[in-house]
Design a protein around this nucleic acid. Structure first.
Lengths: 194, 194
DNA sequence: GCAATTATGTACCGAATGGAATAGATCGGA
DNA sequence: TCCGATCTATTCCATTCGGTACATAATTGC
C-alpha cells in the first residue's frame, strides 16, 4: 500500500482554480500554483500532471459545479421562467465577491488561441455545450407551444448564452450585482412575444 | 538629423496588434512580436518601449479605429436606429475573417488581472468609456422622448455594451456572421416599448 | 519487521524569457 | 567632409520558466 496524500485533493484543486481564474492560464506559473496549493512541484506533477492537464481538470470541475443550474433549466416546465431564473442565478453567482472576478471559462474563452489547441478545443466545446443545452430547452419550449414555430432555438440560445458571457466580462471590470441583475432582466425583454 | 526608420510604424503596429490579438498578451513573446513586425528587438524597444507600453499603444490605436462608430451613434437622431446600426456593424466587423477572432479589447478584459495594474486599468477604462458613450446617447434619447422617463440609461448601456462583448466572446469560438447578426437583432427586441 | 508502492522535498536541468550593452550604419546640417 | 544624432543588428545577460532525477518518508499486506 502506498504512502497517502498529505494534502486534500479538492482543496488543492480549488486553490489551483482560483489561481488560474485570478491570473489567467498564461500568466500563472507553477510557482504561483504550488504556493497557492501548498504543495511542492513534484507532488503537483505526480497528482495532476503538467500545467495544461491541471487546467483542463480544473476547468472540467468548474463546469461540473454548475451542472445543477442546467438541471434546473430542464426541471422548470415554463421555459421563459426557467431561463429567467438561470440568468438571475448567474448574475448573483458572478457577483459573488468570494471568488475572483468574472468567469474562469469565459475569461479564457475570450482570448483562447489556437496555438494552444487542447485548451482552445476544451473551451470551445464548453461554449458549444452551453448553447446546445439552451437550444434543447428552447426547442422543447417550441414543441410545448411556449415559443412561436418560426423562432430559431439555436439563435435564441446564442443570445442567452451571450448574456451569460456578457455578464462575465462586465463582472471582471466591476462586479456590481445590481448591474448584472439588470442585464439579466433586460435580456428577458427580448423573449419573443407569445 | 537622425537616421530614418527603416520600417513603417503603422505596419509594425498593425503586426503587433494582430500578434497580441491572436496569442493574448501573456502568451506573446518579444520574439513573436519582432518576427511579426519584421524588426529587431532593440528597434522595437527604441520605437515603442517595453512590451507593456507597446500593448497600451496598440490598444489605444485599436480603439481609435472604431471612434467613427461612436460618432455615428451620435449623428443618427433616432437612438434605437443608431444603436441597431451600431450592433449590426459590430457583428459584421467581428466576423471579418481578415482579423484574428474575437476582439482584442474584450478578450483581454475578460481575463485581465490586477497583477498587471496598468493593463487592467486601461482595459477597464475602455469598457467604462464604451458604457458611458452609450449612456450619454440613451440619456439624450430620453430627453428626446424616445425613451420612457423611468428607463435607466446606464443600465441600458451596460446591456448593449454587453451584447458587443458577447459577440466578441462568441466570435472567438466561431466567427459566424449570421449568428452574430442574430444576436444583434435579438438584443434590439429588448428595446423598451415606446 | 520486511517488502512493495506511492508521495514528498531538495536540488537541479536546459530552454526561453524580457531586456540591455555595445558597436556600426545612415542620415541632414555645418 | 566631418559632426551630431538616431536607428539598426549582433550579442549577451540575469532571471524565470516548465519540468524532472533522485533520495527519502510514509503507509499496508504479508
Amino acid at each position: 500500500m502506498p504512502r497517502p496524500r498529505s494534502f486534500d485533493t479538492d482543496s488543492a484543486l480549488d486553490a489551483a482554480r482560483d489561481t488560474f481564474w485570478r491570473l489567467g492560464y498564461d500568466a500563472t506559473t507553477l510557482t504561483d500554483l504550488t504556493d497557492a496549493m501548498g504543495i511542492a512541484r513534484p507532488s503537483l506533477y505526480n497528482a495532476f500532471g503538467d500545467k495544461e492537464t491541471l487546467f483542463l481538470t480544473v476547468l472540467a470541475r468548474y463546469e461540473e459545479a454548475y451542472a445543477g443550474m442546467f438541471d434546473a433549466l430542464d426541471a422548470e416546465p415554463d421555459a421563459r421562467l426557467a431561463i429567467a431564473r438561470h440568468l438571475r442565478a448567474v448574475a448573483a453567482g458572478i457577483a459573488d465577491p468570494s471568488y475572483p472576478g468574472g468567469c474562469l471559462r469565459v475569461g479564457h474563452t475570450a482570448i483562447a488561441s489556437t496555438e494552444e489547441p487542447a485548451l482552445a478545443r476544451a473551451l470551445a466545446e464548453r461554449q458549444q455545450a452551453q448553447e446546445a443545452a439552451f437550444a434543447r430547452r428552447l426547442a422543447r419550449a417550441r414543441r410545448d407551444g411556449q415559443l412561436a414555430a418560426d423562432e430559431d432555438p439555436a439563435a435564441l440560445a446564442a443570445f442567452f448564452v451571450g448574456i451569460v458571457n456578457a455578464m462575465a466580462v462586465r463582472a471582471r471590470v466591476d462586479p456590481d450585482a445590481g448591474v448584472l441583475a439588470g442585464m439579466a432582466e433586460r435580456a428577458m425583454r427580448a423573449w419573443p412575444a407569445p
